[in-house]
Design a binder for these strands. Sequence first.
DNA 1: TTTACTTTTTGATTTAGGTCAAAAGAATCG
DNA 2: CGATTCTTTTGACCTAAATCAAAAAGTAAA
Lengths: 186, 186
Amino acid sequence: MELAAYMIKRVAFSQQELDDILTYFKKEKILKNQILLQEGNTCHKLYFLEKGVGRSYYLNSNGKYITQWFFGEGNFMTSLESFFQETPSCSYMEMLEDSIVYSISKKDIDYLFEKYHTMEKFGRIIAIEMTTKISNKLNGIQFQTASDRYKYMLKEFPNISTRVPLGDIASYLGITQETLSRIRKK
Amino acid sequence: MELAAYMIKRVAFSQQELDDILTYFKKEKILKNQILLQEGNTCHKLYFLEKGVGRSYYLNSNGKYITQWFFGEGNFMTSLESFFQETPSCSYMEMLEDSIVYSISKKDIDYLFEKYHTMEKFGRIIAIEMTTKISNKLNGIQFQTASDRYKYMLKEFPNISTRVPLGDIASYLGITQETLSRIRKK
DNA sequence: TTTACTTTTTGATTTAGGTCAAAAGAATCG
DNA sequence: CGATTCTTTTGACCTAAATCAAAAAGTAAA
């Protein structure tokens, strides 16, 4: 499983630890357009995407759905705050393709964090990586023209940009669908 | 020290652990306008602000300095990616007021992460909190009008908004100084 | 208390990208 | 397959905020 490689790349887990940890992840198949999380609900699972693409999005004050993030294969997907603080989420999560994921519950991951110092370290490292990625998004968007934003998108998500609806990308970048369409045919 | 309270609020450290951990933090006084980190250098310290305000900023492709983040009292301040990956930073850090901080080196914090499972947990929790805050900034800015952005600023940094230069706030929000000035006299 | 910066405000003008509307293309399905 | 629905493109128009420029206010320095 790709997840094992992902973990070992970041923390020197022993084989036993790794084997044990992986038993807590459950393989799931999820169909395109399936909603993993509704706004207002607490997110109970953390997903690792083996195959497929997902996104998180929210309904803004003007009644528009705004993509917050795209999740591609080889990445974790969750509503971070909701999952870890066990609070109602402000956002939705959905899959944009038929997907294969490995999921783990909050209870189980907390158990693993307690049990293994290495797992806790892994959690810290992943959280720092996520912070860096979001920060990069901000820099890629703020004070950038619409076409610079799209360039950021292509760089950050090279193999996602062509697989998901135009409108989802546009809202992710903070521009309108029409503008993105015009940029694309440059 | 406020730092102890900050830590205990998040993780149930034993008194001995806490005492030991705190010995690795060094108290420092830093003057207004002092640069803590230059672009291109590696950030070697993590700061906890007891008093004062700082900001991180970077030079964008149009030759403008853009504020990335404000750091107020009772918060950690660092160039996250540079500090943890030990890579050259893309951003600067400076203090905007005379400040009192507690600093710790990468070497020491790594030692503490290894030594105490609780410390590792603390690191994870802080990293998740930071992700949430940056994510909130994105939501506060994307597809929002200039005055909505300023409202976000007032909400997120109520006691910083009046203490720092207008231009620094404007670039933080992704608007021009002139626009922010006009918004303020509403 | 005058000189010299620095920061903020105000005004006039321009523009990137938003909005609205409708057509053209794709995809889904009985 | 045609029909219905969803997605993307194209066009015309408009507006929020950028840009440019300069004055005013605030701060420091001598």
